[in-house]
């Protein structure tokens, strides 16, 4: 491992090279950690749904808390109409959460610290929500750019602002998650490097910081997954219930 704090984000291929139409689709360490997260999720949920008890065990309780948490989040932000999208939001939240948490393990790779991954999610959500809006409301969906109660003089400017804010949704959604993850992990790495370079004399100070930052990063890992999911709910709400 080099001292370069960005080295942890390197992607390299594992196993044979897979190329389709000249596009490199090899299995990489990023794919490996995606798979590890997915398997962890499956194991967690499998343990949570193994027994059907009236008084739940630890894992069953955890999975039910998670279910109720997301169910409440969706019904609070997007209302009843968002019920069919519950499994998607659930998967999204739990996948981002597990990717973030797996990334907190030393020597692991953080899938969500790559802009392309978060951008893929964000673009999928953005395009999906937009299509959904047009399917449900037809051309009336364009009303989303025209807030009610705005003076006619200001309307062109407001519309431009609204369109820009709408189009920047995937960018803000993806960059928020990616930047938080990358910044946190880079900081952890930098402070970890300081511990070694300062040695026994002053090394305990960055070590303390490192410990505190790890706690903070775990909080951020949860919080960013939550923010990602709740913003998806809010965008979904705009498409399902056209208030403005």
């Amino acid at each position: 491992m080099a001292t370069n704090p960005m080295h942890q984000f390197n992607v390299y291929k594992i196993g044979p090279e897979i190329k389709i139409n000249g596009i490199d689709l090899s299995f990489t360490n990023a794919s490996l950690f995606m798979l590890i997260s997915a398997i962890s999720i499956s194991i967690f949920l499998l343990l949570g749904t193994k027994d059907k008890k009236i008084i739940p065990g630890k894992f069953q309780l955890l999975s039910e808390i998670l279910y109720n948490f997301i169910s409440k989040m969706i019904s609070d932000t997007a209302g009843k109409k968002a019920k069919p999208y519950f499994p998607f939001i659930f998967s999204l939240f739990i996948f981002v959460l597990f990717c973030n948490m797996v990334g907190m393990l030393p020597y692991s790779f953080t899938v969500t610290s790559h802009i392309i991954v978060t951008l893929a999610f964000a673009m999928f959500i953005f395009i999906g929500v937009t299509i959904l809006g047009f399917v449900i409301h037809g051309f009336k969906y364009l009303k989303i750019f025209v807030p009610s109660g705005v003076p006619v003089v200001l309307l062109p400017i407001i519309m431009i602002i609204e369109i820009i804010s709408y189009l920047s949704r995937p960018v803000s959604l993806s960059v928020r998650l990616f930047a938080n993850m990358m910044a946190g992990h880079t900081m952890l790495k930098v402070f970890g490097g300081f511990v070694i370079s300062l040695g026994l004399v002053a090394g305990w100070l960055p070590l303390t910081f490192s410990v505190a930052l790890t706690g903070l990063e775990i909080l951020v890992a949860f919080l960013q997954a939550y923010v990602f999911a709740i913003l998806t709910c809010i965008y979904l709400n705009d498409a399902l219930n056209l208030h403005h």
Partner: peptide, 11 residues
Amino acid sequence: TYWASQVFWLT
């Protein structure tokens, strides 16, 4: 280099 691969495996 690996953007396509990441999106592919993510999907």
